[in-house]
Amino acid sequence: MSIDPSSIPSFGMPPQQPGGGQPNPAPPVVVPDQELVKQLLDQMQLKHVVDEEGDLTAPWEGFRVYYMFRGDEGELFAVRSFYDRAYPIEQKGEILDLIDEWNRDTLWPKVYTHTHEDGVVRLIGESQMIVGMGVNLEYFVATTANWTNAAVGFEQWMAERLGLQKEVDGEGGESDSGSDES
């Protein structure tokens, strides 16, 4: 099964029906698998690899997004983001306040903390859906694309909220004003 590029969501107006006639038949219901997700990531032009545990991973600078099927029969599809930025345990309260705000204001990913034994706090984002009985192909494609975009958006949002935008944009960027004034 392959993904038709036109099935990647436009998030705009509903598509026009050819000739203004009857609506297109309902898209197929599929039981998604890793090959389907690979095709979607290829369509989205995202680099991806399969890690040593067999999970599909799309790496970004500063985080990785995993596309995983879990459960006895792979009936649970999860998109999980592991963010590399480490926070000291003393900053956990501030981080929790920020991710509470994110979780209240957005649908996905739901973000939580993981505190390592050495006191380093890291963030993980997660979105899940049950797919074992099948799912509408367009819905699966749109949701997976949205979850991926949201995982990237969270990293940018967090950097902005913590005043780390220089770190994200790269040190020594252009100044905000275009003038020669000091």
Rank of each mutant, 00 (worst) to 15 (best):
residue 46 L to F: 10
residue 5 P to D: 11
residue 9 P to Q: 01
residue 105 D to Y: 02
residue 98 L to N: 03
residue 81 S to D: 01
residue 18 P to I: 11
residue 180 D to G: 08
residue 6 S to W: 03
residue 17 Q to C: 13
residue 91 Q to N: 12
residue 12 G to C: 11
residue 109 P to L: 07
residue 141 V to A: 06
residue 33 D to I: 03
residue 114 H to Q: 13
residue 3 I to N: 02
residue 105 D to G: 14
residue 179 S to Y: 00
residue 92 K to N: 09
residue 169 D to C: 04
residue 133 M to A: 14
residue 140 F to E: 05
residue 78 A to D: 07
residue 88 P to Q: 10
residue 134 G to N: 02
residue 3 I to Y: 02
residue 143 T to M: 12
residue 108 W to N: 12
residue 150 A to P: 03
residue 65 V to C: 11
residue 67 Y to K: 03
residue 136 N to H: 04
residue 140 F to W: 08
residue 41 L to P: 04
residue 39 Q to R: 10
residue 147 W to H: 08
residue 159 A to S: 13
residue 27 P to Y: 02
residue 22 Q to G: 13
residue 180 D to K: 13
residue 148 T to E: 00
residue 9 P to I: 03
residue 118 D to V: 06
residue 7 S to V: 05
residue 105 D to N: 15
residue 39 Q to Y: 01
residue 57 T to P: 00
residue 164 L to E: 12
residue 69 F to D: 03
residue 156 Q to H: 10
residue 124 I to G: 00
residue 12 G to H: 05
residue 15 P to W: 00
residue 23 P to W: 00
residue 155 E to W: 08
residue 30 V to H: 02
residue 110 K to G: 11
residue 118 D to E: 05
residue 63 F to H: 05
residue 142 A to T: 06
residue 6 S to L: 15
residue 80 R to P: 02
residue 144 T to G: 07
residue 4 D to F: 05
residue 164 L to G: 04
residue 119 G to Q: 11
residue 7 S to G: 05
residue 129 M to W: 04
residue 63 F to K: 00
residue 152 V to I: 14
residue 136 N to C: 07
residue 151 A to G: 12
residue 58 A to V: 05
residue 72 D to K: 15
residue 79 V to M: 11
residue 83 Y to K: 10
residue 69 F to G: 09
residue 42 D to K: 15
residue 79 V to Q: 11
residue 21 G to A: 08
residue 27 P to F: 06
residue 13 M to Q: 15
residue 182 S to F: 09
residue 84 D to C: 07
residue 145 A to W: 01
residue 35 E to R: 09
residue 4 D to G: 11
residue 107 L to S: 08
residue 88 P to S: 12
residue 137 L to R: 14
residue 17 Q to I: 15
residue 48 H to W: 11
residue 61 E to C: 05
residue 155 E to N: 15
residue 86 A to Q: 15
residue 171 E to P: 11
residue 45 Q to C: 07
